[in-house]
Design a protein around this nucleic acid. Structure first.
Lengths: 135, 135
DNA sequence: CAGTATCCAGACGGATACTG
DNA sequence: CAGTATCCGTCTGGATACTG
């Protein structure tokens, strides 16, 4: 905590967490977790290389990191099969599955992406509004 | 696009976007946007300095950046009042308000944070599972 | 008040090579 | 196959100072 100038006594609320949903966002929507969880959620169990191929732009290093984190958070279950060659399978956990309504809400909202696109274009075309900054 | 070695012809799907909800996540859950939207959503209209004070750890520079982005995406409405001293008010837009169910889903899921905590602790205590890595 | 302008550090993630 | 080990560039965001 670097610049907490509010001397509001001992009630030391966590950094950006005046917002109760922030911790959830940290867990569920940190980088790459969305496509990973989505893949496991939608298409079931995957081997490492299958995930790699599905999420084409991720590197093995990063994929490993993310999977470890998801496993640690209990959203993903890793199963190691000691065979030759080794086989590892990842699947979504029960807890992970409980994210379904959240994902559904996300998917629902995606109908609004077009609006966002349009607003952006308009914003970019104006670029200078009355009453304030330009350039 | 740096390492797209898949020569899969013209069908050039966006980076990590084999996942349809990824764009929504980008817009709604990029850094700092959650506490900002939450504040505006829960407590209504805010002046710049009010947001600054509510989200104690954010710097003015970053707050400005985030607000611009949210405005550009149509989630937040900025109103400039040319007075002395200047007064600017930010409020959530209609489109932003449509995120309410999503936020509700987030808030609902936060009951699981305790589970995550517990799983983490267990994971960290084991640290070495049968069949694989340790250290 | 409501921002801008700079400067900068440190984390994140990409590229590449190697291993059990 | 399923990773790990290094190295390194980029880019976000923090600190700080200044302005209309």
């Amino acid at each position: 905590m670097t610049h907490n100038t509010t001397p509001a006594a001992g009630t030391d609320i966590a950094p950006e967490q005046a917002c109760p949903i922030a911790p959830v966002v940290d867990i569920v929507f940190s980088r790459w977790t969305t496509p990973i969880l989505w893949a496991l959620h939608e298409y079931g169990r995957h081997r490492f290389v299958e995930l790699e191929r599905r999420i084409t732009t991720i590197t093995p290093k990063v994929l490993t990191e993310r999977l470890r984190r998801l496993e640690r958070d209990g959203l993903v279950v890793r199963t190691y099969h000691p065979e030759v060659p080794p086989r590892v399978e990842y699947e979504i956990s029960e807890l992970g599955r409980s994210l379904a309504p959240l994902f559904a809400a996300l998917a629902d909202w995606s109908v609004n992406l077009g609006k966002v696109e349009r607003v952006r274009r308009e914003y970019d075309s104006k670029e200078q509004r009355p009453g304030s900054r330009r350039n």
